[in-house]
Design a binder for these strands. Sequence first.
DNA 1: ATCCCGAGGG
DNA 2: CCCTCTGGAT
Length: 217
Amino acid sequence: MMAPVEPALSRLAEQYPNPETELVHTNPWQLLVATMLSAQCTDRRVNMITPRLFRRFPDAFALAEALLADVEELIRDCGLYHTKAQNLIRTARVIAETYRGEVPADRDALMALPGVGRKTANVVLSNAFGVDALAVDTHVFRVSHRLGWSNAKDPAGTEQQLMALIPQALWSKAHHWLIYHGRYCCKAVRPLCHECPLADLCPSAERRDTHVAPVGG
DNA sequence: ATCCCGAGGG
DNA sequence: CCCTCTGGAT
């Protein structure tokens, strides 16, 4: 039992008509850095931090030489600052030394960078390099399971199942639709099934019609 | 109080 | 598998 893919996606397309990334950067280096910063932090806040960061350290060569404390200072209010600063500098060094300052357009190469996992790699591939990839984050994972589109236990498995289910031309959009839907409607706790445009298709929806309303008088 | 558009380490 | 790292939003 699963929600039919095409009708569900077209309803989400209607609900979230402009599913663009909230990260403002499109060049590979800046998008990579912004995406690494975005863990456990809103994109709004990342977008406030990156202009200062890029003014001080414009490229991988500059960041590779940076002092940890300076980077920590610049990114301090987006959380996980120590880990992120460390990973940013290490990743900058690898890119400067191994890739001549250019972000590699290759999933395995990206995932080998410190602090870059499959989700971040896929975001960079699809949003900076135009590669068809479907990044699975916690929202995409949860929503996919609730709709019955995936039963995989790990995000990589869900990624494969979604790619088999969704037309390739829609991967990028579907990623954003599912994220928005997960964030604003199909929430982890207290999902808003009563106002969900997919409720009648969804095997996990809490259905009103099975609920006996109190009868007055 | 609880959660977040993660990733790495044990 | 579980834990930790962080501050901000709600």
